[in-house]
Amino acid sequence: MTLLNILSKEPASNEVADKKPAKTQTRYFRPRYQILDTENAYSIEVDVPGVAKSGLEITLEDGVLEVVGNRSWKAPEDWKSIDNSYSEVAYRLRLAIGDSVNDGGIEAEVEDGVLRITLPKVEDKKPRKISVK
């Protein structure tokens, strides 16, 4: 059998993040993400391909936002993996958001493998114009 020749394949772009203690055996990728800073809110877009709504856990504790995305698909047992990708690994992203965000107003939605989290700014962190007399 000819092995699949994967042309122009770049190394996995996500590094494997730290492991949890041995008992759970869960490994995580840190997903790609970007942060958009608008006047009233921060908007975080996280790439979580393979994760459905039910696979997402988002928590905010002590000023740290944690996103865990578990994939909804697993290869059937009789399928053989023919490359060494990390594609079945869960995602985890931790971001310190401190006290600049209005906790109660955080919203999240996921569509086509992209998670969008909107974090409204607290009033006194919004930019303020100071007029010059």
């Binding site: 699949l4 996500n14 790609r32 009789d78 053989k80 490359d83 493998g113």
Partner: peptide, 28 residues
């Protein structure tokens, strides 16, 4: 998310008795 211009998607490949299956990560 935005800075790479042409990027090869991350893919994983499987083989079973009947087929090859490729899964490409293409969010958004």
């Amino acid at each position: 998310l935005t800075f790479d211009s042409d990027r090869s998607p991350v893919s994983s490949w499987y083989e079973n008795d009947d087929a090859y299956v490729a899964r490409f990560e293409l969010p958004g």
